[in-house]
Design a protein around this nucleic acid. Sequence first.
DNA 1: ACCCAAATTTGATCTGAGTCAATCGGCTGT
DNA 2: ACAGCCGATTGACTCAGATCAAATTTGGGT
Lengths: 237, 237
Amino acid sequence: MKASVVMIEPNGHFCDDCAVRGAAVCSSLDTAELREFEHLGRRVHFGSGETVFSEEDITTSFYNVLEGVMRLYKLLPDGRRQIVGFALPGDFLGMNLSGRHNFSADAIGAVTVCQFAKAPFSRFIEDRPQLLRRINELAIRELSQARDHMVLLGRRSADEKVATFLLGWRERLVTLKALSDTVPLPMSRQDIADYLGLTIETVSRTFTKLERQGVIEIIHGGISLLDPARVEAMAAA
Amino acid sequence: MKASVVMIEPNGHFCDDCAVRGAAVCSSLDTAELREFEHLGRRVHFGSGETVFSEEDITTSFYNVLEGVMRLYKLLPDGRRQIVGFALPGDFLGMNLSGRHNFSADAIGAVTVCQFAKAPFSRFIEDRPQLLRRINELAIRELSQARDHMVLLGRRSADEKVATFLLGWRERLVTLKALSDTVPLPMSRQDIADYLGLTIETVSRTFTKLERQGVIEIIHGGISLLDPARVEAMAAA
DNA sequence: ACCCAAATTTGATCTGAGTCAATCGGCTGT
DNA sequence: ACAGCCGATTGACTCAGATCAAATTTGGGT
């Protein structure tokens, strides 16, 4: 949460070596378009805990996550927090109708984003329906995830929430690295609690319980799935 | 939940007298396009409790709600249900990436939809980016609603959930009829419970409590907000 | 008007997760 | 190496909302 030290790199042909070129919103552009597109965006780095944008801020930019993990959350007036999602490389942020962000986003660890000023980006989309189609696809995918998360928040027990989270997080990481029983958890216990609609104590106790049952092992910076089948059974119902 | 008796009207120029023409997905089309568009859709009626489509069904159609209210929900294997939203006239259903619906939808009371076969509709969108843009807008609006609902499910108390629901539902009806302190509730208590992540008993008790406090009055088929400010105060935090 | 089934309300009791309160452990900086 | 801090864990206790169990009301069909 320290003061922001935003580093902006000089614009170059950085799309060429962009890790998310094939997966992100850019995957809908051909080589010529990409060349034009890269002049619209600039890479920006954020340090751990820095806020990229806040709820109710006027939207001035769109963001394409390149590296790192972000927490996306909403706060109630009394400080209660609900994390509505975690953003990973390839995720596209900033779409809205009101002209204001409807959630806040901050970096969990170091984050690099490709930032686009709103107006030029919107103009660029204007006559490129395939880019719009790609953005629409991403929105629809998020909607589907959001609905799954509503089921979790409204109808699942603490044990089921934690088990579902571990499997879902592992699955999301597949696009970044191969499926592994070692699941890194860059976010804090508090983040996990606020994502699952639980308290930090309940998350901690559930982790400990799973470890005592020999289902997971709590390791530095994550967990290891010792018995993925059992975790799946817990998550299912 | 009785057997479906689907009535299909002969195709005519029914867009002309369509109640949602200005609000729905069609609002992005000019008169000439609308003329072409109406041949793609057919009005279909559903009776109370009938299922329009089910989760995991292969998507064969898109739906534009014309009249009535639908519940959109997901079920866990053991029967627990989470209602992920209510659809009202003007809402557009059926978008997905997997080729399957990711929730079920059934009619609450009589419902009329404008049904479009998937392939011709997709072809029609192909070279009409303004229609795609409109669909994208609707998806983004839904995403925003979904995030608000996550906050409600994960971080609000039963009283806050009910108060927030009453105000939110009243607000959604504004586009159909003017804002009124008399709020019709066509859905059952069980539906409300499954929407709010509560049990039917808790919903019923909360309604009764609000009525005893003189904040609402429970009337036939809905409630009346006697003291909207107090309800807003309960919902806020 | 009457009957039956379903929906809702109300009451009594239980319990899963929250709250409050210590520790514990692992980095960071000196 | 050690102090201090922050995040995580653990324990004891509480409570909001669930569960179980009756009434009671509503509504549709005859």
